[in-house]
Design a protein around this nucleic acid. Structure first.
Lengths: 193, 193
DNA sequence: TCCCCTTTGGTACTGAGTACCATAAGGGAC
DNA sequence: GTCCCTTATGGTACTCAGTACCAAAGGGGA
């Protein structure tokens, strides 16, 4: 990979500053009381530029999740089964991937806790978080189909894995360290090893 | 129950007219191209009144789903197990409830198909639909806790049932009649009878 | 150094959602 | 029927998210 140009470095910098400004303001006043104009001002960019980097106000909360999704998809694709996976086999593969997701999202525990706090307090952010999860499930569904799984297995397995993730997340509460063990326990309870 | 007063009848009528106007306009122009002012005008009410009946533009698409949620919750509460349910037992109870949900939402097949069409074309409506599903899962989770289920079971079982519902819905596509059988097949595949 | 092309940010607009208020219209007491 | 009280209504005016458009600034390559 080539080193980023000056242009690209400035863009990355602006992007990061917008995210930092947004999280700082959200922490101070709460999500609803912060306007996009406020964020842009503190980040020292124009309001228009904010919308060029982030499609809407909600997106800035999930700033780098698109990278995660790509990463997770790539990782899962590398778990190549040697034959079309049955439902049980697909669920086993997905357990590994789901636990990797847990590691990924809690890599920055401080930011994780803050994001959970924001989501808990703003239904619209909960909606957006759920959309991200759905997208991931759909992406994994497609990969399963590529690997030869039946339509039923491809539709069901990622949803069940997501159920385990959400249930584990709920039991874990806001504690980043508790996420993965609780998700693992949910898979165990369903007999998925 | 006492018969509704004139006031209540007019309100119900206004509510119904708003929903009818909204669905008619959405069918004509699509969700995004219809403004709340348009809906209010066709329903012959003030714009303010629209927001008094429906918190936001999205809500009108899911007009009577709150009633469904209450109904489903009540129905599930009536399935009283004689002892605290294990995970497997909770899943069995939830299978019955989930199949009842299938019947409920497809009771008006025309409206069901139209709603699915709108949701498929507008991500924000998908978000809202998912929020409703989450709410239902949380409500069922609470009922399970009341019935003595463990925190883990209460968190996991409704999410798994929801996974079966969504997977079945995906396989069924827009065909109302195919919903319940496909959801049932998903439960079968997981060994939940 | 010069030119091109992308990014930037400013202006102006639409439409969702909210606050407030004057008015109309049930519903009950008599 | 009449009067009064309470509640629903809808109009006005506002904030803010999100979009379209455009002129200017500043990399990047020649």
């Amino acid at each position: 990979m080539s080193r980023p140009s000056l242009r690209e470095r400035k863009q990355q910098r602006a992007r990061d500053e917008i995210v930092e400004a947004a999280y700082a303001l959200f922490a101070e006043r709460g999500y609803a009381a912060v306007t996009v104009a406020d964020i842009a001002e503190r980040a020292e960019v124009g309001r228009t530029t904010f919308f060029r980097y982030f499609g809407d106000k909600q997106e800035v909360v999930f700033a780098n999740e698109q990278d995660w999704l790509d990463d997770i998809g790539r990782r899962h694709r590398e778990l190549r089964p040697d034959r079309p996976p049955s439902l049980a086999e697909a669920l086993s593969l997905l357990r590994a991937t789901t636990e990797a997701v847990c590691e990924q999202v809690t890599r920055d525990p401080r930011r994780y806790a803050e994001r959970e706090r924001l989501i808990a307090g703003n239904p619209e952010l909960g909606d957006r978080a759920a959309r991200k999860q759905r997208r991931l499930a759909e992406s994994l569904s497609e990969i399963l189909r590529e690997q030869g799984a039946s339509a039923e297995t491809a539709a069901l397995a990622p949803r069940v894995a997501l159920a385990c993730y959400i249930a584990g997340r709920e039991v874990a509460g806001a504690d980043p360290a508790a996420l993965r063990p609780n998700v693992a326990a949910a898979f165990d309870a369903l007999g998925i090893r």
